[in-house]
Amino acid sequence: MKRATITLLIVILTCIVVPVLARPAQEDTVTSGVENKKGIETVFAPLEIYIDSGDQELAAYQFELRAVSGKIKIVGVEGGAHPAYQEPPYYDPAALARDRIIIAAFNTSANLPQGKIRIATVHLQILGTETPDYEINLTVAASPDGSQIPATITLVQGEQK
């Protein structure tokens, strides 16, 4: 009886402990430019986003950015260079710590940018040594009357830290 109880206790403890141990451990806190406890090299880098609306005024934009290779985490989003887009744009906070984000902003004022401007900066944490590749898709570029305008979007990766 006593032996059976001990066996039962061992089985129950194993059922509790093993699944906990089997779960993937949370990633360790990383510091810039050094290896974390798992030996993964991490660096931080800004990704500057530019939109060129030509001779049209840019009253609203929306784009989606995601990493198609490499391993990144989005750690922050910053506004752009022009006064109309200096405020941080709209984005889903759930995108932080992920590799995909939708960013959008608009401005109803009369002072709107034309030509090529930096409209946002996305701050990334790059995990590992593989250089990430990104896919960026401009879904909205609109003039002050709300109509879509032809525009191009480009990104430039800033200096890694």
Binding site: A59, A60, Y61, Q62, Y90, A104, A105, F106, T108, T139, V140, A142, G146
Partner: peptide, 17 residues
């Protein structure tokens, strides 16, 4: 807001205007 069949920043822009 603009009945385009999708929700994007133009809806917010239209409402703001």
């Amino acid at each position: 807001i603009d009945y385009s069949g999708r929700v994007d920043i133009l809806d917010a822009f239209t409402l703001a205007r």
